[in-house]
Design a protein around this nucleic acid. Structure first.
Length: 1036
RNA sequence: GCCCGAGUGGUGGAAUUGGUAGACACGAAGGACUUAAAAUCCUUUGGCCAUUGCGGCCGUGCCGGUUCGAGUCCGGCCUCGGGUACCA
């Protein structure tokens, strides 16, 4: 008998729930600490062992911080809107709310079994009206806000209207999508609709015609981060480009703040890099080119204004607004055809054809404002409408795409940047453009001779002077498409009057999701909400039928946790002032360009309007690595290949006395084995095949004077000796029948153990369910019962066992490698699972799941228990005074656990626990003074075990209210240090010396030692390096 | 293509600031206890050579460099993983 984890874990989980141990509130007597896990979407498949990895880490840290005296907020809830439940609804008619509730219940059950310290009284679900009321409320606020670039923050639209009415928009610096200037008078003379249309260009939540990622299979548009390589991230369906009227969030207004804000965050550099790349800031300038014989002007964005003297043509995106006016009559047909062709091409096709150069001349010419030269204006789809101005000046000498284009269409190439100290070469002979980040300008008028950097500023200054351009910063980041043509999402608090959108009054919130008769788009292609009866506001105006995307509800949930039941506000100022922001956020790096940008934007907006007290939502962030699956493989034998392999092993290298050839060919005939010496053909086949072919084989053999052996496969299983005997006889020249009729092999699969020789040549690997495999040994009986066709499977074993192979790959049902935490908890307990997941390796690293190792942690848990109990499971803890050696073990462990926990190095912390327990067993220590602090130390990691032992020690109160032990330097300090002594860098022996010896004393002592003399025999010491309490290195 | 990150025993990994490479654990082999099994405990376990004892050499993806000393720093390359992709 030892630790009964099942009984104990249930008991303490019940106790925690009943006594509300983990509920927290505002407590000004303690410092706060907010630990958050990324919002899970409760999928139907439940949790596998990869999911709780981050939750366990954050739970350990939360419990640790709590024992360190912090008031720890550690909530959990659900991102409950999502495509899977809706897809299921479309298929089955089950309301997504039903599916979601069921999935949540299962999720909760699994989470509870792991022993987390969540304050469940704060749970939120994005699909609950009490929650999404505030998502809608934020949308209304966004709608009524614009971004003032002068104050660098969001401000109310009302204020903007006042400015327009008094001054027009000429002095307004805003992040907006329309640039027409107007005066106060013009503004005041506009109709309301005209004014609303203009305001739409300024709103932070706005409606616009835009190119969207349309996914026909899902029947909805997707945001950029929801698309990867032309396919939807969820479901992997193809995505097309399409122009549609959609709601967007003006996240680009915050691009600069989103970028610079990263510097203050304690996130991994790689994650910050992903966000930096996604935001994609580039500095440059915009230049205006006049069009020859026309009043049109083309504005381009370039990061290299210095190369303007090398601009030999221009290229516009096919969708560019000037294309129609610039196209000459002669070119109209060709241009039109090109536009049609590019329009009809899917995103996939476009991506696949990146290398193909295509484009068409508009017939117009622009004037290079610096050279005065006439340059042709082309259109081509390598220029994107969505970036910069949708037009470029092409500098083929220094840009590889422009270069390829110039070569393809025979356009001139002029070199304008030259590497220092080199002679310019003839661009006509170049194979590619010349990358010119550094160099000196040539053939460039007034900037000739300047270095690139200086030339850039000179051109920008000149352009500003001449009023034909200015310095400009551009971002790759796009505004976020906020409409989804789906049912299962937040309804927009928006109605339409004369096709103009208006927001509902706040008092009408929440606008609840209405019932519908089906979850599909309508016949006319409208979103599912168009099916809802009476989907109108109180005045009878139609409501918006799109719903919000998945990231709407997850963008501000961390704020709601601070005050989740507040019916008057998103959250109270008091709660926000106390909890401030998330101190530690744990989750996967896959959210880098989605949730983690949107949430930062959302929070910055709430900060601007005075609601959130911190500009950034997540101070520190840790990305847990993925847990990959470890698949087990069995090897199904291809019987014919196996027989051939086995026979070749008998025949090759003259093992039977004569030489054989494998796969002997004579014209179109092919035989498995042939011996010219013996004139013998051997053929291995299935019984049925032999019966059919025997005659033709015999005829051939007879015609050539060869003898023939036809061996049915069954013999390899039942009569290997018989085969050998027949071959020997045949070689010896005895008469043997070519073909012995045998009963058929029947159809049963044969599996070969992994390490059998030749196995890789004659078998195919198949996935086998990992529950049927223990320590890579297959449970043959269970395997036979696994699938009907395996019932009479045969096995080729090694040492009486079937050894499986393994592969590391994604955890998935189809690979039979999903490890479910419930099974492991059932077998080893939650504490073992918690510690094992942490023991696997560094939290941030991806690693394969391997159930084999869990036994080690399970043993450790029981060995820990046995420090307190004898072999009869009786309590043996005593009150004896601890010895110095025992105190040293304890305090060294406390220090190590504290240090490792602080830096989230949980795997090494668990090693330290193991070392400590091993040492205390060695010391046979059962002293209360040592073991009680140890219980506290392990409480964050193995909370159930800790509660049980703490209780058995005679304490009435839960261990979670105790303080983390403190280590005492005096117990750890050593008086001597065992120096590794090396010669020329090679460690040779160790020398124990007092720690307080300085370098000189150490040197003297080591040179005087016998060992040292032995190693130095006859050599002169050239140098002695001493690092006190580290190493000694003697150079000779 | 561009931007990151990582390569250490049969396996997961340790080595925190340039200072004893392989901690801790799994697996494996051998042994003790047991009628037997499970559980538990003990020993060995990077490779090669030597083995009568001592020991010796090599070794952190590859090549080179800096240093008394490199898994760690620098330069070049290879492989794998992640991000991104006509972004002007």
């Amino acid at each position: 008998m030892d630790y009964n984890f099942k009984e104990s874990e249930k008991k303490w989980q019940d106790y925690w729930r009943a006594s509300k141990v983990y509920e927290v509130g505002i407590d000004h007597t303690k410092p706060k600490y907010y630990v958050l896990d990324m919002f899970p979407y409760p999928s139907g498949a439940g949790l596998h062992v990869g999911h709780p990895l981050g939750y366990i880490a954050s739970d350990i840290y939360s419990r640790y911080k709590r024992m360190k005296g912090f008031n720890v907020l550690h909530p959990m809830g659900y991102d409950a809107y999502g495509l899977p439940a809706e897809q299921y609804a479309i298929q089955t008619g089950t309301h997504p709310a039903v599916t979601t509730a069921k999935n949540i219940e299962r999720y909760r059950e699994q989470l509870d079994k792991i022993g987390f310290s969540y304050d469940w009284s704060r749970e939120v679900r994005t699909s609950e009206p009490e929650y999404y009321k505030w998502t809608q409320w934020t949308f209304i606020k966004l709608f009524h806000s614009w971004y003032n670039l002068d104050s660098n923050k969001a401000e109310s639209i009302q204020k903007l209207q006042e400015i327009f009415a008094s001054n027009g928009n000429t002095a307004v610096k805003a992040s907006c999508s329309g640039t027409e200037l107007f005066s106060a008078e013009q503004w005041n003379n506009m109709t309301e609709n005209q004014q609303q249309e203009i305001l739409m260009h300024y709103r932070l939540a706005y409606l616009a015609d835009t190119m969207v990622n349309w996914c026909p299979a899902l029947g909805t548009v997707l945001a950029n981060d929801e698309v990867s390589e032309g396919y939807s991230v969820r479901g992997g369906h193809p995505v097309e480009r399409k122009s549609m009227k959609q709601w967007l969030l003006r996240i680009t207004a915050y691009a600069e703040r989103l970028l610079t804000g990263l510097d203050q965050l304690d996130w991994s550099e790689s994650l910050k890099d992903i966000q930096r790349n996604w935001i994609g800031r580039s500095e440059g300038g915009s230049l205006i080119f006049n069009v020859h014989d026309s009043s049109h002007r083309i504005e381009v964005f370039t990061t290299r204004p210095d190369t303007v003297f090398g601009a030999t043509f221009m290229v516009l995106a096919p969708e560019h607004e000037l294309v129609a006016s610039l196209t000459t009559a002669a070119q109209a047909a060709e241009v039109d055809q090109y536009i049609q062709r590019t329009k009809n091409r899917s995103e996939r096709e476009r991506m696949a054809e990146v290398k193909k150069v295509s484009g068409v001349f508009t017939g117009s010419f622009a004037i290079n404002p610096f050279t005065g030269n006439k340059i042709p204006v082309w259109i081509a789809d390598y220029v994107l409408m969505g970036y910069g101005t949708g037009a470029i000046m092409a500098v083929p000498a220094h840009d590889s795409r422009d270069f390829a284009f110039a070569r393809h269409f025979n356009l001139p190439v002029i070199q304008v940047v030259n590497r220092k100290g080199e002679q310019p070469t003839n661009p006509d002979e170049w194979e590619d453009s010349y990358d010119s980040k550094e160099g000196v300008m040539i053939q460039s008028g007034f900037i000739t001779g300047l270095e690139v950097k200086a030339a850039i500023s000179a051109v920008v200054a000149e352009a500003e002077q001449r009023n034909i351009g200015k310095g400009r910063v551009n971002y790759r980041l796009r505004d976020a498409i906020f409409s989804r043509q789906r049912y299962w999402g937040e309804p927009f608090p928006v109605y339409y009057r004369d096709n103009m959108p208006f927001t509902l009054p706040e008092s009408d919130l929440p606008l609840e999701l209405p019932p519908v008769d089906a979850y599909l788009p309508t016949q006319s292609g409208e979103p599912p909400l168009a099916r809802a009866k009476n989907w109108k506001n109180t005045e009878g105006y139609p409501l918006e039928t799109n719903t919000m995307p998945g990231f709407a509800g997850s963008s501000g949930y961390y704020l709601r946790y601070m005050d989740p039941r507040n019916t008057e506000a998103y959250f109270s100022k008091e709660a926000n002032d106390y909890w401030q922001q998330v101190d530690l956020y744990v989750g996967g790096a896959e959210h880098a360009t989605g949730h983690l940008i949107y949430a930062r934007f959302w929070n910055m907006f709430l900060y601007d309007i005075g609601l959130a007290c911190k500009e950034e939502p997540f101070k520190k962030l840790i990305n847990q690595g993925m847990i990959q699956g470890r698949s087990s493989m069995v090897y199904r034998v291809n019987p014919e290949k196996a027989a051939e392999y086995m026979l070749w092993e008998e025949l090759r290298d003259k093992r039977m006395g004569v030489a054989f050839e494998k796969e002997y060919r004579d014209g179109h005939r092919k035989f498995d084995f042939f011996s010219p010496d013996a004139g013998l053909i051997i053929e291995v086949k299935r019984q049925q095949a032999l019966e059919k072919l025997a005659t033709s084989y015999e005829e051939y053999a007879k015609a050539h004077g060869y003898r023939l052996l036809l061996i049915p496969l069954i013999d390899f299983v039942v009569d290997m000796d018989g085969i050998r005997a027949r071959i020997r006889k045949a070689i010896a020249g005895e008469e043997v029948p070519a073909f012995v009729d045998k009963p058929g092999l029947g159809s049963f699969p044969v599996f070969a153990s992994k390490n059998l020789p030749g196995r890789e040549y004659y078998s195919d690997a198949l996935h086998v369910d990992i529950s049927l495999v223990h320590n890579d040994i297959l449970d043959i009986e269970a395997f036979k019962k696994w699938q009907p066709h395996l019932a009479n499977a045969q096995f080729l074993l090694e040492d009486g066992k079937y050894v499986c192979g393994w592969e590391v790959e994604k955890m998935s049902k189809s690979k039979y490698n999903v490890q479910n935490p419930d099974e492991l908890i059932e077998r080893y307990g939650a504490d073992t699972l918690r510690m094992y997941e942490m023991f696997l390796g560094p939290i941030e690293q991806s690693k394969p799941w391997d159930t084999q190792g869990i036994e080690g942690v399970f043993r450790f848990i029981r060995r820990f228990w046995k420090l307190f109990h004898n072999e009869n499971n009786e309590w043996i803890v005593n009150d004896e005074e601890p010895a110095a050696s025992e105190l040293k073990v304890l305090h060294r462990t406390i220090r190590k656990i504290e240090e490792d926990t602080e830096r989230f190095s949980f795997n090494t912390a668990i090693s330290a626990f193991m070392i400590c327990v091993n040492e205390l067993h060695e010391l046979k220590c059962a002293k209360k003074a040592i073991l009680e602090p140890l219980i506290l130390l392990i409480a964050p990691f193995a909370p159930h075990l800790a509660e049980e032992l703490w209780n058995l020690s005679g304490h009435q109160r839960s261990v979670v209210y105790e303080s983390f032990p403190q280590w005492n330097k005096d117990y750890i300090t050593e008086s001597t240090f065992s120096y590794p002594v090396s010669f020329n860098g090679k460690t040779r022996f160790k020398l124990e010396l007092p720690v307080n010896f300085d370098a000189k004393a150490v040197e003297k002592a080591v040179l005087a030692s016998d060992e040292c003399r032995k190693w130095l025999e006859g050599k002169t010491v050239r140098k002695v390096v001493v690092v006190p309490n580290r190493i000694i290195n003697i150079v000779h």
